[in-house]
Amino acid sequence: MPNAIETRQLTKRFGDVLAVDAIDLCVGTGEIYGFLGLNGAGKTTTIRALLGMIRPSEGEVKVLGQAVGPNGRGPWAQVGHLVESPSAYPELSVRENLDIARRLHGKPDSSLVDDIIERLALASYADRKAGTLSMGNLQRLGLARALLHKPELLILDEPANGLDPAGVIEVRELLRTLARDKGATIFMSSHILTEVDRLATRIGIIHKGRLIEELTAGDLEKLRTKRLEIRSRNFEAAQICLRSAGYPFTVKDETITILHPHAIEHPDDIAHILVNAGAAPTRLAVEQQNLEEHFMELTADSLTRESPK
């Protein structure tokens, strides 16, 4: 089975601006891939390139095993998308907007529209003009349009944008159900890192146009794992006594990290061992990094540079 999304050295320049820089993406069928990045990092440009809306300056894009053509040709009958802010024809009703999408997807079954209206909780707005919808309901309409034709692959740019907390949870459950029960592949960008953390099976972080890191489910799990971090003035003695006490550890930047459950549950025991060995800790803390912290670390240079002086 081919990968749902594959890019090779995908590059996009707008004049002198390098928006996307040699990205190699590979998203397997059935994955939920979270695509993270700061504003202007290149997320939307990448998504538009995946959808054939912009021509790569260099590199190739394959979607569902088919090359996305320079004229925008691609396997779009099997792809649903939501790009940037949702939009609709304001003078048409919700139902009419969806009916247009249904026909342009070549689907003769008009019950698809009723089904998706029901599933996205849009029934009470079905005959209202799209121009009168709130941002949240407009987002639901955008999602409805993306899901209407039962696609194999969903490419969603900020799917939870504008939704209230209940809506965010509903969309999360909906996407999880699609991936789990129907084998749909989901490629989503989001600013809501906790949302991506909860939903994604793999995460790619784009920064200044480059894919700087990919985290697998295992990496994400590790990120969430608690650890005991230790610093001591007598660093050598601290390592020797911990090794003698049978606590495996790693060392990085003069910090000792222990993942042993007993140490995490009873840091006072570790403190006692260190003090007895003459290596009293200058720092002893149980830490648990989350995706947000990790993301901030990775993109720190931009945040520092862009913060007001």
């Binding site: 089904d115 969903l154 909906l174």
Partner: peptide
């Protein structure tokens, strides 16, 4: 939003009738 209802499925039956794109 009822997530337990019929959800998107993998693939489209090749024999499925479709609307003429231009007429759509």
């Amino acid at each position: 939003m009822n997530v337990t209802q019929e959800s998107p499925q993998t693939g489209n039956p090749p024999e499925e009738r479709s609307i003429n794109p231009f007429l759509a």
